[in-house]
């Protein structure tokens, strides 16, 4: 627990989290406004849900940048040295801490998007308004997608130890890999992080996967990459 608290303090004492929070909220609000006002008539529940959901790309980048920064600024080694714990334990604590801060960012982003988007949808579009029973699972899916994206990014940052490489790897994992996989098997795309995100944020309709199944698929990706990052850290030098 000491390690996790220390790593959370690290994240909260630099501006990275603040800037990503501001950018992510601004983007979510902008997305909500643009989609709600400029997408023609949204008169179906699924269309309205889609207008509120968004790809948590900035949150993915936040995880990648925050964790890779530990190596860029050589702050990973002091944490290992003073704590008396192994690099693997410190890396695991860092990923948990980044995930926890990411959860906060995801809640903030989703909250902002909903606070702006829901009234606009209700005021400007015909058809049924979104009910609490529809909004709550959608919000939950968006928050979960955001937090797990942070964890995916953080794991990539830990694995690659380079901010640019980690961001590029995140883009490849989310956008390029699904296209390549889709050429082999269209149904396999649903199992990729991008496919799972699409279901969680209602970016796609009629998927063969349910929301819980997609959440599980994304969680497996995130946790799997995180475990890989921790195992790699245990085997690598910090000098």
């Amino acid at each position: 627990m000491t390690l996790i608290v220390g790593e959370v303090r690290k994240l909260l004492t630099i501006r990275t989290a603040l800037w990503f929070a501001l950018a992510s909220v601004a983007l979510a609000v902008l997305n909500g406004i643009l989609v709600s006002l400029a997408s023609g008539t949204l008169d179906e529940v699924t269309e309205k849900e889609e207008a509120l959901g968004g790809m948590p790309l900035l949150l993915l980048f936040f995880g990648a940048v925050a964790v890779a920064a530990e190596h860029r600024h050589r702050t990973a080694a002091p944490a290992v040295l003073v704590s008396g714990r192994g690099p693997g334990a410190v890396a695991a604590a860092r990923l948990v801490a980044t995930g926890a801060v990411g959860l906060g960012l995801a809640v903030l982003t989703t909250g902002a998007a909903f606070a702006v988007g829901v009234p606009i949808l209700a005021a400007h579009h015909p058809g049924p308004d979104l009910t609490a029973a529809q909004l709550i699972p959608l919000a939950g899916g968006c928050v979960l997608a955001g937090m797990l994206s942070v964890l995916v990014g953080a794991a990539l940052g830990g694995l690659l130890r380079n901010q640019i490489a980690a961001v590029v790897a995140g883009i490849v994992a989310y956008f390029v890999a699904p296209s390549l996989i889709g050429m082999i098997s269209a149904s396999a795309v649903d199992y990729t992080p991008f496919g799972s995100l699409q279901v969680l944020t209602r970016g796609v309709h009629g998927s063969a996967h349910s929301v819980p199944a997609s959440a599980l698929a994304l969680a497996v990706w995130a946790v799997g990459l995180a475990v890989l990052a921790v195992l790699a850290e245990r085997r690598r030098d910090l000098g």
């Binding site: 690290k10 004492t13 630099i14 702050t75 002091p78 040295l81 910090l238």
Partner: peptide, 12 residues
Amino acid sequence: VAIDSCGAHPGR
């Protein structure tokens, strides 16, 4: 330890 691989974040 005070060696090159021990740094401090410039923003803190």
